[in-house]
């Protein structure tokens, strides 16, 4: 197996690394780059959304992207959200309403929410539920998650 080289942007910084090609973006984020916000919860089936990151502006499951497919792309993870220690409005809203229980699904939920608000800044509750339908919370706290996303959306300037 020949190793491959990949150059991509991670939270605004360009990285180049070499890796075996049978590794996923999630494995590289966690093991090579020390970015452990994205989680593996379903064992790489794309079922749970805990590994959600934003790839070229779109929410994707990083467990379903081989590292070679990331070449030239821009990746955003939960670690890139709070510049200078200031929480992102979504993060503040999650804290404010207590939309966190065990926390394992939270980074993925927040990244999926961010991608949703980028495309649809003022979503209905149904849009929020649809946008987060790929993110499972096994503490089953969806009501507060939807509340938090709605609050973060309300804080954005109206278009």
């Amino acid at each position: 197996m020949k190793s491959i080289q990949a150059t991509f942007e991670i939270n605004g910084h360009e990285v180049t690394l070499s890796s075996a090609p049978n590794r996923t973006l999630l494995e590289v984020l966690r093991q090579d780059l020390g970015l452990t916000g994205a989680k593996d919860a379903c064992g790489g089936e794309g079922e749970c959304g805990a590994c959600t990151v934003i790839m070229d502006g779109k929410a994707v499951n990083s467990c379903l992207v081989f590292i070679g497919q990331v070449q030239g792309c821009s990746i955003e993870t939960i670690e890139g959200l709070s510049g200078n220690g200031d929480l992102h409005p979504l993060q503040r809203a999650f804290v404010e309403v207590g939309a966190v229980q065990c926390g394992y699904c939270t980074p993925g939920v927040i990244m999926a929410s961010k991608a949703l608000l980028n495309e649809n800044p003022h979503p209905s509750d149904e849009d929020i539920r649809e946008g987060l339908s790929g993110n499972l919370c096994r503490c089953t706290g969806y009501v507060k998650i939807v509340d938090a996303v709605r609050i973060a959306a309300e804080q954005q300037p109206r278009r």
């Binding site: 794309g46 959304g49 779109k58 929410a59 499951n61 379903l64 999926a112 649809e130 339908s133 790929g134």
Partner: peptide, 9 residues
């Protein structure tokens, strides 16, 4: 199809 993460890929 699946969820938004699946549809995006």
């Amino acid at each position: 199809v699946g969820c938004v993460q699946t549809r995006n890929r």
